[in-house]
């Protein structure tokens, strides 16, 4: 099972970034727009920008993925690594609601702490969403400092 703190972090509207890998081994950075820990405690449902064609192509047929979530007020951060299944464009109401909740919390935190106008942050919001399921293998501490990169564990070992 995931540590409750990690579940809370990803539910808090954290700043979320996603790395995928191209067929030639090239990294590709993009943003995540919602992450929900599934009931089995080993998988998560990850929401991506459906118009990020490179990320979609990299995960076509499934692929390795890394997701880092950073708490905007504290910069406390974790990174999940695992294997994603093929993403599909989603219009499921639960996914749309999840992404909306994520954006509202994320934008509100950034605006409150850094004074950024919400209207500017809205430029980042994706028009279309894609969803995939990630089997999480490892969880890392990613908070800036000497402990960054240390392994926190695997959901399957807990």
């Amino acid at each position: 099972m995931f540590d409750p703190e990690i579940v809370t972090l990803f539910d808090s509207g954290c700043s979320m970034s996603v790395a995928t890998v191209g067929p030639d081994g090239a990294p590709h950075a993009s943003r995540g727009w919602g992450l929900t820990v599934l009931p089995d405690g080993e998988h998560v449902r990850l929401l991506l920008d459906a118009n990020d064609s490179v990320a979609m192509a990299n995960l076509a047929g499934g692929g390795a993925v890394a997701v880092t979530g950073v708490c905007v007020p504290t910069l406390k951060a974790v990174q999940l690594k695992g294997e994603a299944d093929e993403p599909a464009v989603t219009s499921e109401s639960s996914d749309l609601a999840r992404a909306t909740r994520h954006c509202e919390k994320f934008f509100a935190d950034v605006s409150k702490i850094e004074g950024t106008p919400i209207v500017l942050l809205e430029r980042l919001r994706p028009v279309d969403l894609a969803a995939c399921t990630v089997a999480v293998c490892e969880v890392y501490n990613q908070t800036p400092g000497p402990g960054a990169g240390s392994l926190l564990g695997s959901p399957r070992e807990r």
């Binding site: 996603v18 390795a64 890394a66 997701v67």
Partner: peptide, 18 residues
């Protein structure tokens, strides 16, 4: 605004950090 960097190990495992 913090930047984000993605890299990949030789065995194909991605990493992403701020």
């Amino acid at each position: 605004v913090p930047a984000v960097i993605a890299s990949v190990s030789a065995d194909g495992v991605p990493n992403i950090t701020y």
